[in-house]
């Protein structure tokens, strides 16, 4: 079962703004047709994200590191795929103008990614999710 909270959470996280019902229906349809039911541990992880939405990015990293083929990670992938396939989702992935100082930005991105990985490791260890 997917809840509106879950959907809101994922879409806010990935797209940064409130989503519409049409997308919710697509997401729910995807979860059903791909049979992405969650194991108890994944339910805990999701619930924790709903309660602590600022941490969702860290949990996302934790899933990528610890359980890359879990159904919860696949739900994240599904939400990302649906958003990517919106005309206004293009800008999230493909830039129309050259980005300035790309090497520097990649470097900063790398540092942020490494730090989030460390945080995710610690969180999963603390919560005994690893």
């Amino acid at each position: 079962m997917t809840s509106t909270e879950e959907f809101e959470l994922l879409f806010r996280y990935l797209k940064g703004n409130h989503s519409d019902d049409n997308l919710y229906a697509r997401y729910a349809n995807g979860v059903t047709s791909l049979q992405l039911s969650l194991a108890p541990k994944e339910q805990q992880q999701l619930l924790w994200c709903i309660q602590h939405p600022v941490w969702i990015g860290v949990v996302d990293y934790g899933l990528a590191l610890h359980t890359p083929s879990s159904n919860l990670r696949k739900r994240f992938a599904l939400a990302a795929a649906i958003i990517e396939c919106q005309p206004n989702g293009v800008e999230l992935y493909l830039n129309q103008k050259r980005i300035k100082s790309p090497v520097f930005k990649t470097f900063i991105w790398g540092i942020k990614a490494a730090m989030t990985m460390v945080l995710a490791k610690m969180l999963f260890l603390l919560k005994r999710w690893s």
Partner: peptide, 25 residues
Amino acid sequence: LMGFRLTREFPVGFKSGQEFLKLLM
């Protein structure tokens, strides 16, 4: 090859993947 597929191949989160793919793609 859609971005979500590429992100799945790396040990990173999907939001962070979006930022990276804009640079990378």
